[in-house]
Amino acid sequence: GTVHVGDKTYHFPTPDAAKKFAQEIAKKLNLQVTVKNGTWQVH
């Protein structure tokens, strides 16, 4: 899975790992999470 946070991109071996990371970052930074075609965006 891929997660975009601002101008950074993180790659994870599984979709679940990407989802978990995106949700944790969003919670920590009080941001929104959207997913499109398996790519997570934190914004």
Rank of each mutant, 00 (worst) to 15 (best):
K20W: 08
Q41N: 12
P13N: 11
K20E: 11
T9P: 04
N37K: 05
V42T: 04
I25G: 00
T34Q: 06
V5A: 04
W40M: 07
H11G: 04
L29F: 15
G38R: 05
T14S: 10
P15I: 11
Y10F: 11
F21I: 02
Q41K: 06
N37W: 03
A22C: 02
H43S: 13
H43C: 11
H4I: 15
H43N: 11
F12G: 00
E24N: 11
K27P: 01
K27H: 09
Q41C: 15
G6Y: 13
T34V: 07
P15T: 12
T9W: 14
A26H: 02
V33Y: 06
F12C: 08
Q32N: 10
T34W: 05
V3L: 03
V42I: 07
H4R: 14
A22Q: 00
A22V: 04
A18W: 02
D16H: 10
V35N: 13
F12Q: 00
T2G: 04
V42H: 02
A17G: 07
A22K: 00
H11D: 05
A17Q: 11
Y10I: 05
V42G: 02
A17R: 07
D7G: 14
G38C: 06
A22H: 00
K28I: 11
F21Y: 07
A26Y: 01
L29E: 05
A18K: 00
A22M: 02
K27C: 13
Q41E: 15
Y10G: 00
H43F: 13
D7I: 09
G38E: 06
L31N: 03
V33A: 10
V33S: 03
T14K: 03
N30I: 03
F12W: 03
L31W: 14
V33M: 08
V35I: 11
T9C: 10
P13F: 08
N37D: 15
V5Y: 09
K28E: 09
V35W: 14
G6N: 08
K27T: 10
T9E: 09
K28C: 11
W40Q: 04
V3N: 00
T2R: 10
V33H: 02
V5R: 01
K36R: 11
G38F: 07
K27A: 12
G38S: 06
A17E: 12
F12A: 00
H4P: 00
K8S: 06
T14M: 04
E24Q: 11
A17T: 05
F12N: 00
I25N: 01
V42C: 02
K28Q: 10
V35K: 08
Q23S: 08
K27I: 08
